[in-house]
């Protein structure tokens, strides 16, 4: 590891705020583009299984999320 302690790693000679902010924004955006389709797929599957259950005439159980 290049830095001696946590403080110097966070500070980075005054550039720390820029570097860490850039990484934080990137992480948030990257997480969003991976998580958004996963959530959409889960929602679709839930909708479709609810629809299938209704069509079969089985009473729905549990809460509708």
């Amino acid at each position: 590891m290049y830095f001696h302690d946590l403080h110097s790693a966070l500070h980075m000679d005054g550039h720390g705020a820029f570097v860490w902010a850039a990484y934080a924004i990137t992480c948030v955006v990257l997480l969003l583009i991976v998580v958004a389709p996963l959530r959409r797929r889960r929602r679709l599957l839930r909708e479709m299984s609810a629809e299938a259950r209704r069509q079969r005439g089985v009473p729905t159980q549990g809460s509708e999320a």
Binding site: Y2, Y23, C27
Partner: peptide, 25 residues
Amino acid sequence: GMVWGLLFTPPDFRQGDSYRIIYIH
């Protein structure tokens, strides 16, 4: 890659530590 770029690479001799953004930019 992020940990490596942020913590384990030497700083650039001209730009200092701000060059670490290169690893995502």
